[in-house]
Design a protein around this nucleic acid. Structure first.
Lengths: 192, 192
DNA sequence: AAAACAGTTGACTAGTCAGTCAAGCAAACG
DNA sequence: CGTTTGCTTGACTGACTAGTCAACTGTTTT
């Protein structure tokens, strides 16, 4: 499943063959089809596994012990670093694996589309709680934390998509600053 | 080229075969390869043609005769209507064809990636000039129109991606409102 | 009329794809 | 011991892929 995520992320679902996944994973195709019904089912499972692997880090970054706006900017910084590292490794800025995959086949394979939707929603909840806390502490004015989180996810995913398309991490450099500005907390940051 | 854009937009580049495009366009494959060197070259040409077809409407919507913030909200309204219509026609919310295609194969086919980048950039320029005008008229405070336009594109594309993934136009309903809020012009609108 | 030109056609190649399957293996179980 | 169970293997299928090509059309030029 790691091999699958890697290949699909780096290339695309359509151009990643089951054969290639098996080879990278050191398995034979017969074995693969013993565990998975189809390529689509593998993708769903791989998405879930990938998220579970990232969840621990998310919980750490979005710990309630951290000031809410710092959670967000730390997260965006973390994402930026990750993208830059990956760029160095494989020569391409890969953006968000969930969004990329979801856009590619969401219209054709609802199982994968729904799984991506679910994961993106989980992601939004971290944002939402940070925004709610920030609002409660008077750091920002955001009575509608859910809507605001949705906006933030859109901005975030859009920036990642841009970075992938341009093959350039530049759109991600100002992710944290842009996010805080979007939340109306720019002054606090720029004053820092 | 229209057939190609339609099929690629509705499905994906990877799952759209040259045969399918030819059939939809009522041409034979031999003829196709007389005019285009490859599927990739067709995609680049189809993207350009698609943009040129939309350009007239863009010029109209972003006319300097229209108050700058209205240009933006009219545009987002226009996009929303378009997506809703398309949803009714084919049962799926398709999001942005450029972004979807760019994300799918930007890492594998730089020619297409660059073309998408170029088109997205042209789009951003309409935003940029509207933002600059709005700033000049004191409607918003945005001394850095270019950066702000980039943010707006990210938010816009992210929302479209979300809509495609969820197969739901809901994320697009608040596009105009969200955009104006992002620009710090929320009060003007909600007061309207 | 002859030749050049622009475009069309459908059959073809050679390769790839997802998915199948019968046979095999080794360890656990009775 | 024999048998069942969980898993592996590699050869296989049939459908589909991008791209090719020589022969064919109709129109224009000489």
């Amino acid at each position: 499943m790691n091999a699958a995520m890697d290949l699909i992320w780096e290339n695309s679902y359509g151009t990643t063959s089951v054969d290639a996944i098996c080879e990278k994973a050191g398995a034979k195709k017969g074995s693969f089809y013993y565990f998975f019904e189809s390529k689509s089912e593998l993708a769903v499972a791989a998405l879930e596994a990938d998220w579970q692997r990232k969840k621990a880090r998310m919980d750490e970054i979005f710990s309630a012990a951290v000031p809410p706006l710092d959670r967000l900017s730390n997260y965006f910084q973390h994402v930026y670093e990750g993208q830059k590292k990956r760029h160095g490794e494989c020569g391409s800025v890969l953006g968000c694996p969930y969004c990329t995959l979801g856009c590619e086949i969401g219209t054709q394979d609802r199982a994968i589309g729904d799984q991506v939707h679910k994961i993106l929603d989980r992601n939004a909840r971290y944002f939402e709680s940070a925004i709610r806390d920030a609002h409660a502490q008077g750091l920002i004015s955001a009575p509608d934390a859910k809507t605001r989180a949705q906006m933030l996810v859109a901005f975030f995913q859009g920036s990642l998509a841009q970075a992938r398309i341009e093959n350039d991490v530049r759109p991600l450099r100002s992710l944290a600053a842009g996010a805080l500005e979007l939340l109306g907390a720019a002054s606090q940051l720029s004053a820092k």
